[in-house]
Write a protein that binds this DNA or RNA. Structure first.
Lengths: 164, 164
DNA sequence: AGATTTCCTATCGAATTACTAGGGAAGTGT
DNA sequence: ACACTTCCCTAGTAATTCGATAGGAAATCT
């Protein structure tokens, strides 16, 4: 579980508890295999996620078509597709909902004037780049601890781990 | 304005009003030139930013060493350094805090277990990527509407402007 | 002095986030 | 039929954050 500084945050890019929990739950399912069902309680236990909170998130994953559920004694959740066909981006999107915004306004609706005119293409570029990574890396990659080389090389740069 | 996709859905990437306003104010100063002072009210007017709100943001930029202020009749704000030596990342960080966070915690302070172990390097890679762009593009680039080629090519990909 | 403009503190409502509570619906084994 | 399990749904809530506003003190110019 993530223990550490309870500092302020929230800047240009932030991954919410919901998104983080959703990905970790999906990874647990990926590790169990496409044909094995896990109960919400077991996932919550394994990843240290509040169980009732997780239930809501798993509901989102189900409605998003990423996960299949079954109730009753032998019930639980399992992945709807092979883990190598589910990018991390999908999980985050389904759990966290529509959420690309500048000041709560969607980019196409922004009007920048004067010297700020080129700001929009910049935001778009950043977003495209983030999506390139999270759309390329799948649950299978992370669960097997085998990230694609280009992603790994980004993370290997020592400067990437420093503060600001 | 381009009314392209109505739902610019996607990953949890959000630029706060504070960060957006801070960058736009800095761009206005960049356009004015390093030696020209602009009054907060003038910047607020030019960019359509609530003037009292902007005052607080400019205070942050000053404390962050990006801007120099002068009070009194001929006072105002001006850049502390040449516009081509101030990356957008610096402005956002100073105005809004760290650039990327997971659940309010900065990536290096997270700890993951089980199949989620490789999540940390993934977040680090994403963060490094965001930093690469926003650390490369300066106020001068945006104010002159001349983004670096590699950034421009990312934004030019039509798919970058569409939905999931 | 008098006008101007930054600077500081304090407050506010609305929204969002991360969770909690309780109970009903659907499925399973005896 | 019955008990038990597990998902499913709706509400609520405490804490924080966000965007914005107000009033006035301190500095600087003419």
């Amino acid at each position: 579980m993530g223990t550490g500084a309870a500092v302020m945050d929230n800047l240009s890019m932030r991954i919410s508890a919901r998104a983080d929990y959703a990905v970790r739950a999906a990874l647990e399912l990926a590790a169990a295999g496409e044909d094995t069902s896990l109960k919400a309680e077991a996932i919550a236990e394994a990843q240290g996620i509040p169980h009732k909170f997780l239930e809501g998130i798993l509901g989102d994953l189900r409605r998003g078509g990423l996960v299949i559920s079954q109730r009753g004694g032998k019930g639980g959740y399992r992945l709807a597709r092979p883990a190598d066909s589910i990018p991390i981006a999908d999980v985050i999107r389904v759990a966290d909902g529509p959420l690309v915004s500048v000041r709560g306004v969607r980019p196409p609706d922004l009007s920048y004037i004067g010297p700020a005119e080129s700001l929009l293409p910049l935001w778009i570029a950043v977003r495209a780049n983030v999506r390139k990574i999270l759309g390329e890396v799948t649950l299978a990659h992370v669960a097997a601890a085998k990230l694609p080389d280009d992603v790994l090389s980004l993370a290997d740069d020592p400067e990437a781990w420093t503060n600001p």
